[in-house]
């Protein structure tokens, strides 16, 4: 189990880095788009450094930024109302948190399976993005990776919480 948690942590952390880079990518695409089109407008189209597809780069950049950060941020990313359960023991609180994690696991795996299915349909139909004509199935498959890791990470967190192995939580 130690090995499992360790590896899930590592994978989640690596995806998290990809997600962070994706966020910076969005930021830079928007800035580049604003600068080039302002230049384009000011020179009446003489200086045309504009590039197509900024809209969908941001759209799918956001998808990867978030889908790839969700596994790593899963345990820190939840809002819980604890007013009515204040007097529960710490043990019951972690146990029930471990239990709820299993739903996240189910969600992650179900999503991964569905996205792979959508991906294979998109592959058959040849659907692409509007401007850059990127085949949609790549996007579905890559998103499925994030969701599968979310499922694994949820299982790992659930185990860690249930067996009180806090030290293994990154």
């Amino acid at each position: 189990m130690y090995q499992f948690n360790l590896w899930v942590n590592r994978i989640a952390y690596s995806l998290n880095i990809v997600g962070g880079i994706s966020l910076l990518f969005i930021m830079l695409v928007v800035i580049a788009d604003i600068l080039t089109r302002t230049l384009f407008g000011m020179t009446k189209g003489e200086v045309d450094l504009t590039f197509p597809g900024s809209f969908e780069m941001v759209k799918y950049g956001l998808l990867f930024a978030l889908a790839y950060c969700m596994p790593y941020g899963l345990n820190r990313g939840q809002v819980v109302v604890d007013l009515f359960t204040d007097n529960w023991s710490v043990k019951s609180k972690t146990r029930i948190a471990a239990f709820y994690m299993l739903f996240f696991a189910a969600f992650g795996f179900l999503m991964a399976e569905n996205l792979i299915h959508s991906g294979s349909l998109a592959k058959q139909s040849g659907e692409t993005t509007q401007d850059l004509m990127i085949p949609m199935f790549y996007i579905y498959y890559l998103a499925a990776v994030g969701m599968a890791v979310l499922g694994l990470r949820a299982v790992s967190i659930s185990l860690i919480l249930w067996f009180d192995r806090d030290g293994e939580l990154a």
Binding site: L62, N114, I139
Partner: peptide
């Protein structure tokens, strides 16, 4: 479930949040 997650995460309008 799939639509709720995929369409939200790839919604351009949400890009300012992060």
């Amino acid at each position: 479930l799939e639509s709720g997650a995929f369409d939200t995460l790839s919604n351009y309008s949400f890009s300012p949040v992060p």
